[in-house]
C-alpha cells in the first residue's frame, strides 16, 4: 500500500514539483485571494448533490459537466437570458472567474448516473431515435460534453427542459429544433419520452 503510493509520488514530473514548490511559497496569498472553485462548488451540493451528482429528480446532475457548457449556462442565468426558477438569482452572486472555478471543479467530478426507473422497451426505441437525430451533437449517447449531459440525467429535469424548449420559454440551441421536430415526426408522440427513457437507461 505504502509502496504503491510512493510509486504515484515518483511519477510526479519535475514540472509538478516546481509548481508545488512555487505554490507552497505562495499559499497564503493565493488562498486568501478568493474562495476556491472547490469551496464555491461545495455550496451547490444542497440542490445538485454532493460534488454535483444529484439525487433529487428535478435538479440536474452537474458533475462531469462540460466546463464551458457550465459557464454558458451560468452566464445565461446571470444575464437573465435563460428561464429559471431560482438559478438566475443564484448565478448573479458569482463573478466570472468564480463561475469558471466552479465549472472546472464540477468538470473534474465523476457523475453518478441518476438512480431512476425506466422502461427498457421505450429506452430501446429512444436509442434508435438518439442515434439518428441526436448523436451528432450529443455524442456517445449523450454523455457529458459540449452539448450538455443527457445520459444518466434525471428524467423529470430533462422533461422540464424539453417543455421549456417546446413552449418557447427557452431558445433551442442552433439546429436543435429541426432535429427534435424530425425525431417527433419519426417517432410520434412517444418520441421524447422514448429518448428520456433511453438517457435514463444509461446507469
Amino acid at each position: 500500500m505504502g509502496a504503491e503510493n510512493m510509486n504515484r509520488n515518483e511519477t510526479m514530473s519535475k514540472k509538478v514539483r516546481n509548481l508545488l514548490l512555487a505554490m507552497l511559497v505562495q499559499v497564503p496569498a493565493v488562498v486568501l485571494a478568493d474562495p476556491t472553485g472547490q469551496a464555491l462548488a461545495f455550496t451547490c451540493a444542497g440542490c445538485h448533490g454532493t460534488d454535483g451528482s444529484s439525487v433529487g429528480p428535478s435538479s440536474p446532475s452537474i458533475a462531469a459537466m462540460d466546463p464551458e457548457v457550465f459557464i454558458d449556462a451560468m452566464q445565461a442565468y446571470k444575464r437573465d437570458e435563460r428561464n429559471s426558477t431560482i438559478m438566475n438569482r443564484i448565478a448573479k452572486g458569482y463573478r466570472d472567474e468564480q463561475i469558471k472555478g466552479m465549472a472546472w471543479y464540477f468538470a473534474k467530478q465523476k457523475m453518478a448516473p441518476a438512480p431512476q426507473a425506466f422502461d427498457p422497451k421505450l429506452a430501446e426505441a429512444g436509442a434508435k431515435l438518439h442515434e439518428k437525430y441526436c448523436e451528432k451533437c450529443h455524442e456517445k449517447g449523450g454523455r457529458p460534453g459540449d452539448a450538455g449531459t443527457l445520459a444518466g440525467q434525471w428524467m423529470p429535469y430533462l422533461n422540464f427542459t424539453m417543455e421549456d424548449f417546446m413552449s418557447g420559454h427557452r431558445d433551442y440551441p442552433r439546429k436543435m429544433k429541426r432535429k427534435v421536430d424530425a425525431a417527433v415526426e419519426a417517432g410520434g408522440d412517444e418520441a421524447l419520452r422514448a429518448l428520456l427513457h433511453y438517457y435514463a437507461s444509461k446507469q
Binding site: K15, L20, V27, V30, T36, Q38, L40, G101, W104, Y105
Partner: peptide, 18 residues
C-alpha cells in the same frame, strides 16, 4: 495541498496540474 491549490489555479485560466 493540491486540492486547495488547484481550483485557485483554474480560476487563473488553466486547469492546473492536478
Amino acid at each position: 495541498l493540491l486540492i486547495c491549490i488547484a481550483p485557485a489555479q483554474s480560476t487563473e485560466g488553466g486547469v492546473g496540474m492536478v
